[in-house]
């Protein structure tokens, strides 16, 4: 029961982007089309699950005073591994994501979950928390990406839907990200009020 709760809390109830409002920087930057958004989500999922796993494993032998530097070493190791692997095997995606892959290291979702969850909970729970949070991040980023791409470029996953000249360019520019996130958050709040 607890495991299930740890898993699904990240998806909607404590969705990192739409509820906890963390990790907004990469969200704003790479959600201008669906493919970039999904690529970023996969990279974040890899780092988040990996760092949650390792931090939960070593939490008993980590001295409290230096836990943050140790978290940072672990997280940056995973990010660099991810960076190399993407460069070697998925070059096109790597070029599209560019500077945002190294920047995962300062993504608050990862350090946030390390400090708030993985450091205090057993391995299995922490991995499930990582999976759940990654799914929540993927869902948020994916839906923002699809909405912005459709409205702003008239295509989805690069497949043209209608003439791009009637698309609203503002949606793939930074303001479009704020508008989209705001609308989705308003919608979620409305839904929750109804349920309650």
């Amino acid at each position: 029961m607890n495991l299930w709760k740890d898993f699904n809390q990240g998806i909607v109830r404590e969705n990192p982007v739409l509820r906890l409002m963390i990790g907004l920087c990469p969200t704003l930057a790479v959600s201008n089309n669906a493919i970039n958004a999904l690529g970023m989500s996969v990279a974040v999922a890899f780092v988040l699950i990996g760092s949650n796993l390792v931090i939960a494993l070593i939490r008993k032998i980590t001295p409290d005073e230096i836990r943050i530097p140790i978290f940072l070493i672990i997280i940056s190791t995973f990010v660099t591994v991810c960076d190399y692997v993407m460069q070697a095997y998925t070059q096109a995606l790597y070029q599209a994501l560019g500077v945002f892959v190294p920047l995962i290291v300062v993504n608050c979702i990862i350090l946030g979950r390390a400090e708030a969850f993985a450091y205090k909970n057993p391995v299995l729970n922490s991995v499930l928390d990582g999976v759940g949070m990654s799914l929540g991040f993927t869902l948020a980023l994916g839906s923002i990406g699809v909405i912005r791409e459709v409205l702003g470029a008239g295509s989805v996953f690069g497949i043209p839907l209608f003439d791009e000249r009637i698309a609203a360019t503002i949606m793939i520019l930074p303001p479009g990200a704020f508008i989209t996130i705001g609308c989705i958050m308003a919608f979620l709040n409305k839904m929750e009020n109804k349920v309650l």
């Binding site: 530097p69 140790i70 070493i73 672990i74 190791t77 660099t80």
Partner: peptide, 18 residues
């Protein structure tokens, strides 16, 4: 020393991946 050990392990892993 603890911090140093973590750094060495992580550097070793990165060297291998690289």
């Amino acid at each position: 020393v603890t911090l140093g050990v973590f750094c060495v392990i992580s550097a070793g892993m990165l060297a291998y991946v690289f």
